[in-house]
Design a protein around this nucleic acid. Structure first.
Length: 427
DNA sequence: TCTGGGGTCCTAGGACCC
DNA sequence: TCTGGGGTCCTAGGACCC
């Protein structure tokens, strides 16, 4: 494991002495592949601070800015010193750090910045995969020579993101995507960490099991229950024990703990994004039990979902309704729609049906969610449609486009749907 | 600590078909 | 007729990630 880190000056993240080393490729690329993982540091908070220098040097949390019913979605490293972190309730965060600045989440802005960063990363490797809004994985095996080694590439990427976007990031480098990602996690913040294949198991061994990607709360509890608390212990655990307790996942976890991994980051990685879904959910300040009020919320959700689906030029087939009651029990009902669609009327009709099937009488609803899944490209779908039907559809689409334009220009509320019996499910 | 919102993937039972 | 095994789809729920 080698560190290339200079907290005081993000411009020079690597010492001249290290630079000497990296011209020798840290990986034997003839037999090994090399991956680079880049992860933005406290991304949402960093973007906000960049755009408002008055926040520099202060504890900053994004999220939890209005009311008490919210959570922090990102906290800068100063705020983290007070224990603030993503997922913490606003109440708890304010208790721990009353003088922190709490900011509204501005999702569109982060998405925009993210897209620019991803575009910039693309020039470093033809195999660049965005994994979320703030991280990406690159295979750099083929471009090591071009740039003079893996660490050089990491250094250039960090420097580019700093100089072009004024945002701090951490780079991890390893023999597979998993080890590279773990290296980035361990190298935070503002770091560049290399973990070689031979040393991965050794580096992971002292870590608690929940530091491993894919091992969350439930699995951690289960592992602790059989006396396994560190990745080192997991790496040495008997296969039989793991298999009986976790099924096929057991041996997989063990391999991960040893730094061995050859799988995919995501299922859709090599077949394109075909199973994606688009959805929205809302937690209501006041829990709702009145059917008319529930319907109004459902209509609003359906409109948001349909609009995003149309904007993405997709159509979808599976509608999922989620209901969370005040005691936090959460249920979901889904159904395959009779037609593949991007039409809110269709969504409303079936969402309302699902709600009536699923909702337990008189219980108060804390959250409603609506999601359209099994999406596919509208163009592809339309080509398969009968010309006769496409002509009929045209009028409807013109209406939708007009409404979408109005909403884009004047906000979500400019046009409210008239409530009527039109969407009542047929008995 | 009284718990947001965006997702993906996996599992397991039942239906249904051959 | 009470009876096999495999494949695939549908559905609900849960784990996990950022």
């Amino acid at each position: 494991m080698s560190w290339h880190h200079d907290k005081h000056n993000p411009h020079t993240i690597i010492s001249p002495a290290t630079l000497e080393n990296v011209t020798k490729n840290p990986f034997r690329s003839d037999i090994e592949r090399t991956f680079l993982h880049i992860d933005m540091d406290a991304f949402f908070a960093s973007v906000e601070i960049r755009d408002n220098p008055a926040l520099e040097g202060r504890p900053v949390a994004v999220g939890g800015s209005h009311g008490n019913r919210g959570v922090v979605t990102a906290a800068n490293y100063i705020a983290r010193k007070y224990g603030l972190k993503a997922g913490m309730t606003a109440v708890e965060a304010r208790r721990r750090c009353p003088h922190a600045v709490f900011l509204r989440v501005r999702g569109e802005k982060y998405t925009y910045v993210s897209a620019q960063i991803m575009a910039a990363l693309e020039r470093f490797s033809p195999d660049m995969r965005p994994l979320s809004v703030d991280e990406a994985s690159l295979e750099i095996t083929g471009c090591l020579k071009l740039y003079g080694g893996a660490v050089r590439i990491g250094e250039e990427i960090k420097q580019l993101i700093w100089s072009k976007f004024r945002l701090p990031s951490t780079v991890g480098i390893g023999p597979n995507r998993l080890v590279a990602k773990m290296a980035a996690n361990l190298g935070k913040p503002d770091g560049l960490l290399v973990i070689h294949s031979e040393e991965a198991a050794e580096v992971f061994a002292p870590l608690p099991v929940d530091k491993m990607i894919g091992i969350g709360k439930a699995t951690t509890n289960a592992l602790n229950g059989i006396g396994i608390t560190t990745l080192g212990q997991l790496a040495k655990a008997p296969d039989r024990l793991l298999k009986s307790r976790f099924g096929i996942l057991g041996p997989v976890m063990k391999k991960l703990a040893r730094g061995e991994w050859s799988g995919r980051m995501r299922k859709d990685e090599d077949r394109g994004p075909i199973e994606r879904s688009i959805g929205h959910q809302r937690t209501y300040g006041e829990p709702i039990s009145d059917p008319a009020a529930l319907k109004a919320k459902l209509v609003a959700l359906a409109e948001m979902v349909a609009r995003r689906v149309r904007r993405a030029r997709m159509v979808g087939r599976v509608l999922t309704l989620t209901i969370r009651y005040t005691d936090f029990t959460t249920i979901s009902h889904q159904s395959v729609l009779p037609v593949i669609t991007d039409d809110e009327d269709e969504l409303i009709l079936h969402a309302w049906r699902l709600l009536n099937e699923a909702l337990e009488e008189k219980r108060k609803v804390r959250l409603l969610g609506l999601s359209l899944g099994r999406l596919k490209s509208k163009e592809k779908h339309d080509r398969q449609l009968d010309i006769f039907f496409s002509n009929l559809k045209l009028k409807h689409e013109e209406l939708h486009n007009a409404l979408d334009n109005l909403r884009d220009r004047f906000g979500e509320r400019v046009i409210a749907r008239a409530m009527g019996g039109r969407w009542e499910p047929r008995k």
